[in-house]
């Protein structure tokens, strides 16, 4: 792969990943945060492909974006959906 394409893709992915991570932390709605978190994992699996680690990318894609998100959603359903001070918005 062209060096320039590689560096541009990596930069784009990291900007997206950090933006999504900040949105996870700032969001008051926990279900929304769980879904954004699965987005972080999906982009991370793309970065693993860029780093020539297809095995790790497969594991991260299926665990990070499917199973972690659903386990978080199950736990949130047993507790509160909103963080304190987030319901009235």
């Amino acid at each position: 792969m062209n060096e320039l394409v590689f560096i541009a893709l990596a930069t784009l992915m990291f900007i997206l990943m950090i933006a999504l991570a900040v949105m996870v932390i700032r969001s008051k709605d926990l279900i929304k945060a769980a879904i954004l978190l699965s987005g972080v994992s999906l982009i991370a699996s793309f970065v693993f492909v860029l780093l020539r680690a297809p095995d790790v990318a497969m594991a991260e894609a299926s665990i990070g974006s499917a199973l972690t998100a659903i386990i978080l959603v199950f736990a949130i359903k047993k507790t509160n959906r909103f963080e304190e001070g987030g319901e009235e918005k």
């Binding site: 996870v24 926990l30 693993f48």
Partner: peptide, 19 residues
């Protein structure tokens, strides 16, 4: 201070360390 949010933050750190 929300516990589930703290667990999400730990997951973000784990992703970063793996990368």
């Amino acid at each position: 201070r929300n516990l589930i949010k703290v667990i999400m933050a730990i997951t973000i750190i784990a992703t970063g360390v793996n990368l």
